[in-house]
């Protein structure tokens, strides 16, 4: 489904590569976790795959498409950005109608898709309230719906559960599992390693723009000495030092 070959990205003016000679293959219907410390290059990798930025070198294909077919590619994938990307002054419904329209959806079909998703994510009561009045968890859920109305075959989620309570998190994860059952390939980043351990079919641990380990969560845990969970694996591989740099 996704084939990445020798992909590298160095931002203009940056000293180091944010993604460096990265090779990765993700199969159809996988739930793939990209894990790594702050600044590891997770968002950069997703941005590359979504054609938000251009690679410095290397290539990738998604379902056979490259960034040279931007409109087909964009129709095929969905991106849930790390930051909220909604109009605070518009209601949930208005936001979703607008972004749905950008994927060419309209009329009754669009309406029913919106109300279905809103129902499942428990926001029916707030459909006609302005997003500016929503809590963080509610915004996260709307932010998610805005990216899946066109039923993407590949869904990228950049920390979809950051800053939400356990209830919201469970609803979101359940919903993603539902989408996955319906056929969506999911690539997701997170700092919640317990969540990733349960949710992902496979994970990759990234640091300094390179993949340092990948496999099924249980596989990684049993391969690492003295590791009881993914967090132990993570710390063993990436060390305890803070990763603050800009």
């Amino acid at each position: 489904m996704i084939k990445i070959e020798q992909l590298s990205k160095k931002y203009k003016g940056a000293e180091a590569y944010s993604v460096s000679d990265l090779d990765l293959f993700i199969d159809e219907k996988e739930i793939f976790g990209l894990l790594g410390p702050n600044g590891a290059g997770k968002t950069t990798l997703i941005s590359l795959l979504c054609s938000l930025i251009k690679p410095t070198s290397g290539s990738f294909t998604i379902d056979g498409l490259t960034y040279k077919n931007p409109n087909q590619l964009k129709q095929l994938i969905g991106i849930v950005p790390q930051e909220y990307a909604l109009y605070p002054a518009l209601t949930a419904n208005e936001n979703l109608t607008y972004f749905g329209s950008m994927y060419g959806l309209k009329g009754q079909l669009l309406k029913s898709k919106i109300s279905q998703a809103i129902e499942i994510l428990g926001l029916s009561k707030f459909a006609n309230k302005k997003v500016s009045t929503f809590s963080g968890g509610m915004k996260r859920r709307i932010n998610l719906i805005a990216s899946i109305l066109h039923e993407p075959k590949v869904l990228f989620l950049d920390e979809p559960t950051v800053g939400v309570d356990v209830q919201s998190k469970n609803v979101i994860i359940k919903y993603l599992q539902l989408l996955n059952k319906k056929g969506a390939t999911i690539i997701y980043t997170s700092h919640h390693l317990n969540e990733a351990e349960d949710f992902c079919t496979r994970v990759a641990i990234i640091d300094h723009g390179k993949i340092i380990s990948q496999g099924q969560p249980q596989e990684l845990i049993s391969n690492q000495k003295n590791a009881n969970n993914l967090e132990d694996v993570f710390l063993a591989l990436t060390g305890k030092a803070l990763r603050d740099h800009a």
Binding site: C50, I79, P81, E83, Y84, Y87, P88, M102
Partner: peptide, 13 residues
């Protein structure tokens, strides 16, 4: 600034 523009860039528009 509110990120909607980034989202629009990921949309086929």
């Amino acid at each position: 600034n509110q990120g909607t523009f980034v989202r629009l860039r990921t949309n086929p528009v």
